[in-house]
Design a protein around this nucleic acid. Structure first.
Lengths: 208, 208
DNA sequence: GTTTAAATTAAACAGTTGTTTAATTTTGCT
DNA sequence: AGCAAAATTAAACAACTGTTTAATTTAAAC
């Protein structure tokens, strides 16, 4: 598993990831990143060209192997509903582990005008959607899933539920009494994941 | 229906709303707002105190009557599932009409540190949750809704699905062939709303 | 050891940021 | 009319923004 980035670049990328997730893309300055990563402010431009291109590199760095994981999931010998459950788990786990890059990826990056890497990212999303679609069609032909669901709207429900929970972190930490970081993360891994799986299962199977 | 803000303040608030929704809070400068609203840049500080307090005022301005609408919905003579459907419609309609303030409200405002008005906003969210809870408990006691759903996680599913769709606007416009603004908004009002209603209904009624 | 390229630095660049000041104009009141 | 409060203005403030430059240090190759 070799990356196109050297050690120093990876440090910059990971520091940037943390700060972007904490304070947003606009809210993070190159000087913030440089200080945290203990490098000179010129190094970001030197290695990545610009702040925007740093963001593009970060997204590339974090999404390069997602497609591979999805492809492996599809060919596993599992019932469709089990595949869906695993896909949900996979998504949540990745998003949660990668600190907060997906927040930028799905929200902030969308509003940036640079059409360069945005196209590549759009392709990634289309690929993910195709993987989900193939699982659902498999379930439909087996007669397990209902056929009137709007497949492209399922991803928004999966990811949107998670994001909304995560974006209102402090609200839910207070509401659900999840004082420590561990309690909060554990709640995501168990209850929230279960809720999403339960929701999608009901949507796919329930007959009105 | 009188507001605490005068005409000039309302102009500023509504210009700010549009710009915040377009370019984000950090991405919008006071000079942007002043130019668009055709006022002097000092007027924002003069009327609202600071840029952050302008945001707080904006949220106050836009959420003050939401609770009232929810209270009216609860006492209507409808089946619980119909109330849920109406609640979903109400949410989506409000979010969609108020341009994009809810994006800031639910995402950007959360990451701001100012604990002042954040507390008030948290109370609003708790109130909304209580309204939803009362409807669901009503359905549970009537034996229509299942009893093992995690109620606080339903709002994330409703709002999260919508937000995720809306945040990836250009992606879905391309994917679903919604070239014009009208087509896009119509898709939200029909298909997306239906998808969310369908999802929540399945979640509340489906027995595994 | 010399040479060549890569890495790193401090400094300066030209803009933009939110906010404040002090002066001026407008408004409402008697 | 005169007066006082409110509204509006242009200008300045210091701090921060992303990026570039030119000089210096480090590393690798021969």
């Amino acid at each position: 598993m070799k990356s196109n980035f050297n050690d120093k670049q990876i440090i910059i990328l990971e520091v940037a990831e943390t700060l972007f997730a904490e304070k947003g893309f606009d809210g993070t300055s190159i000087r913030n990143i440089a200080k945290e990563a203990k490098i000179n402010i010129a190094m970001v431009s030197y290695y990545f060209g610009s702040k925007e291109k740093l963001l593009e590199s970060l997204i590339l760095y974090r999404t390069s192997d997602l497609k591979l994981q999805l492809d492996n999931l599809i060919i596993e010998d599992l019932e469709p509903i089990e595949k869906i459950n695993k896909l949900i788990e996979l998504y949540i786990n990745r998003i949660n582990c990668n600190k907060g890059i997906y927040r930028i990826l799905h929200f902030e990056f969308t509003s940036k005008k640079g059409d360069s890497n945005l196209q590549a990212f759009s392709e990634l999303k289309k690929g993910n959607l195709k993987s989900l679609e193939s699982i659902i069609i498999e379930g439909q032909t087996k007669g397990i899933f209902r056929k009137d669901v709007i497949i492209p709207l399922i991803t928004p429900t999966i990811l949107g539920t998670f994001f909304h929970f995560h974006m209102n972190k402090s609200f839910f930490q207070n509401l659900l009494n999840l004082k420590t970081e561990d309690l909060y993360n554990n709640y995501i891994k168990t209850n929230l994941t279960l809720h999403i799986q339960q929701t999608i299962k009901a949507l796919l199977i329930y007959e009105s």
